[in-house]
Design a protein around this nucleic acid. Structure first.
Lengths: 152, 152
DNA sequence: TTTCTGGTTCTCTTCTAGAAGAACTTCATT
DNA sequence: AATGAAGTTCTTCTAGAAGAGAACCAGAAA
């Protein structure tokens, strides 16, 4: 198969991969996404990915489907060609960002429920908790504004 | 040992625990932190924690040290008392928040290095990547401002 | 000195995530 | 109808995370 990676590219895939592992991706998923970010071609097929990363078919399949589910990658098809051409969706980071911000709601709801059930005795602690909870709401609101206002 | 938890408190520890597991804490760590957030006493000893959560000494010790290392909890001592009294540091969320925002730097650095090594061919893709990288910087800056402006 | 308290560390076990490889499926083409 | 391409699913295998319990250790007290 064509399109060999340079050593530098391999290195970048590893380092970016590790960072993405730290963000909750499995090793294989992290590298697939990194590959799609680093590679000279913006779109790669299943076999090109498998080949570039030396992964088994199952690992490739699972990694891809993982990333598709979390909407970190997408794919296109071409008429008269059964293959799927995968691309990272880093370009559409806004949605991912918004989702992660919305993810804070569950956390905050939990904190609010704790607050409602806490003893009244510990006023200082409760006030701190309340402060944090209110900050979370403020932060969510303002973060969304930051994204909305982002168009230099 | 004293200070039994109500059923509601146990329930809250579990649900808050699960959420915190989703944020990367181990089950035991997640529950210790949740306990310190939910319990009527703001400070609990090793044995009170162990007892409330029915954990082994090793699990308790590891969970506590974990949380100490990530600065999610702290402790005090009292004169003439060898015990440590642990408390959650949710009240000092600002530091934790700032750290998580600073954590984005490594991610962004990696993206910048990728950009520097990408083929020039794919201008649209590269522009999107650049846009994202710039947004990250903007977001970091502005997030810090959000914290600074919070209730001041 | 021995004992007690407040943990820490070591060993063992269990459980699960992740990956490999082979078998299988599905649609398209010959 | 048979073959091939593009994946998916099933069956292992392995490494490491979590936790239990026992052994250990350091400082205080008796």
């Amino acid at each position: 198969m064509e399109n060999k990676l340079t050593d530098k590219q391999k290195e970048l895939i590893e380092s970016f991969g590790v960072i993405q592992e730290g963000m909750g991706l499995s090793p294989a998923s992290a590298r697939v996404d990194a590959l799609l970010t680093v590679a000279d071609k913006v779109e790669l097929t299943f076999d090109q990915i498998r080949d570039a990363l030396q992964l088994s078919k199952s690992a490739t399949s699972n990694a891809i489907n993982n990333l598709l589910m979390m909407k970190r990658i997408g794919y296109k098809t071409k008429p008269g060609d059964r293959k799927r051409y995968f691309h990272t969706r880093l370009g559409q980071w806004k949605n991912v960002f918004l989702e992660s911000i919305n993810g804070l709601s569950a956390y905050n709801e939990s904190i609010k429920e704790i607050l409602q059930n806490r003893t009244e005795e510990t006023t200082e602690f409760n006030d701190q908790l309340k402060d944090f909870s209110e900050f979370l709401e403020y932060y969510q609101r303002e973060s969304i504004k930051l994204i909305e206002n982002w168009k230099k």
